[in-house]
Amino acid sequence: MTAAQHGDALALDQLLDELAPYVRRLCARIAPAVADDATQEALLAVFRGLPSLQAPEALVTWVRAVTVRTAMRLARRADREVAAADPAAESHASSLEGLVDIGDALARLPLPQRVVLVLRAREGLSEQEIAATLGISAGTVKSRLYRARAAFREVWDS
């Protein structure tokens, strides 16, 4: 890690091997419609920021935060573009046609609810870790999780 931070390209290459699958998985779960772009943008942000990372032992936490924020930004942008192209389009949560699996059901939740549920149920993070990742309070995480679970059940049971 220290070698990578000091511009050792082979160490950076190795680090990319280790981080890319995790970054891709998070992006695919949070921003499935734009997972490729989100993965590339998140990795660029991570590798640009590596030399200035003060606490290398916190690498995974930092990579997670950068990735989640990048994926959310691109997912919002994609949602805006879809809405602008077709203002009559149904929201994800209410569009149930073709629902095939849990990932599909998650993808149909509103973004803020999808993110907390992905981080809690699929990535196994605690409410405190989710709060730190998203830069919100633990109380907000708790209430979003409550609404997300209810919305997921609604989507799944339909």
Partner: peptide, 19 residues
Amino acid sequence: EQAGIDPVDRLTVLAAALP
């Protein structure tokens, strides 16, 4: 496609860490 990233995209990421 190694480690989930296309080689040309990988090169762009590597360059980001080499000012």
